[in-house]
Design a protein around this nucleic acid. Structure first.
Lengths: 221, 221
DNA sequence: GTCTATACTTGGATAGAC
DNA sequence: GTCTATCCAAGTATAGAC
């Protein structure tokens, strides 16, 4: 299973496994630090302490603290992307989409996934060049939101009322803004109420979405 | 006008004026630093450099960097509160409210007012106790949003569809989330498009808002 | 690969001259 | 009130032992 490396006499595989464990521990430590102490508190020492290893290993394995933080963001993204995709893909109406979004948001709120993203977005502001890299990592999430909205709204009357690109942008902004408020006052109920309300309104859109537009009947050519 | 202090022989008033100028310069420097370099970059040295004075004055006048940053947040709040209140008070329909919100958001986005707030909200996360103080300062804005929404929706059918408390929470979250996205990718157009769309949808609510509920006609008791 | 030790930098905060 | 000088804590990053 494990590819034999150089000097594969004894212990190499396990040592490699140990090394991978350290990397994983550092990434997890970075995620926890971002979530609990914020970007400013996510120092190499803080992360290493959470990972239970030396601070020097941050630089050995990742080169710099910022690169480790980006790896942490990648890890969170990867972990969530599957959950997002499957939840959103099986939503076949606007209200089902809203309900999926509500469930996903609640999970992410509790687990702190959005928190990590928000910390990186704002922390990036004080480190030149980091913003672009965070933006790059945010893109798949935005694409996912756009796809989900576009698919459920489709070419219906609802899409005229609410163009997918704008709805998707608003959806992503909503995740971020509601997370900010929730983490400030520790009140997740208010955020969830907003998603619940969006679900109610979405049911109205379901009706409109069911009405397919009569293929540009009135339009000139 | 100026209250005579101790040793009011000569120059005391002007010296006092100079001192006030320094305080103002520090507050402005703090605002600029928060906006341009973020919470992590808003150090005493950075701020003092922008204010054109010694770093020691931060501590002499404000006691600590955090207290200066809070003063900066207060200043931004005070500056904007009047503009907000007058704009929102003269909105007499949901769509007018949406248009006001759009104009205000554009001003704040360009001037960086929301940026300062977001930086303080996330930066607070890494400093114990700061979160409560920021939350306290956010409250007037939330109250204002709530009042505006409650007044324009009123006791109409629209208020059933969209309870003021939830709408206000969503409105504040929208400001924050859209600012986060706009500052990450430098694209304010997408955020403004969302507000524009909200305006279109608000016109639908205007119709509902015009329909006053027949004082709980169907309800039991 | 992992550790300890350390060089170097930056930032908060204070002391004391003026 | 404002400055310069300084102390101290914390952070990034590297060197070198194991």
């Amino acid at each position: 299973m494990a590819k034999a490396g150089p000097r594969a006499d004894r212990g190499t595989a396990s040592r490699r496994a140990l090394s991978a464990e350290v990397r994983a521990a550092l990434v997890n430590g970075a995620i926890d630090a971002l979530r609990e102490t914020g970007f400013a508190g996510a120092s190499a020492r803080e992360i290493a302490s959470r990972a239970g290893c030396s601070q020097a290993l941050v630089f050995y394995h990742f080169g710099s603290v910022n690169d480790l933080l980006l790896a942490a963001l990648d890890e969170v993204s990867a972990r969530r992307m599957d959950a997002y995709r499957s939840a959103l893909e099986q939503a076949d109406s606007v209200s089902a989409l809203a309900e999926s979004a509500r469930l996903i948001f609640r999970q992410d709120l509790d687990a702190g996934h959005v928190r990590v993203l928000v910390e990186m977005m704002t922390g990036a502001h004080s480190v030149p060049g980091l913003g672009e890299q965070v933006a790059q990592r945010l893109q798949p999430w935005r694409d996912l939101a756009y796809e989900a909205v576009r698919r459920t709204l489709g070419r219906s009357a609802a899409a005229r009322l609410l163009p997918p690109a704008e709805a998707a942008h608003a959806l992503v902004a909503g995740f971020l803004g509601l997370e900010l408020l929730a983490s400030l006052d520790g009140d997740r109920a208010a955020a969830l109420a907003v998603f619940g309300r969006a679900g109610h309104l979405a049911r109205l859109l379901d009706v409109l979405a069911a009405v397919r537009l009569p293929a540009a009947s009135k339009e000139k050519k």
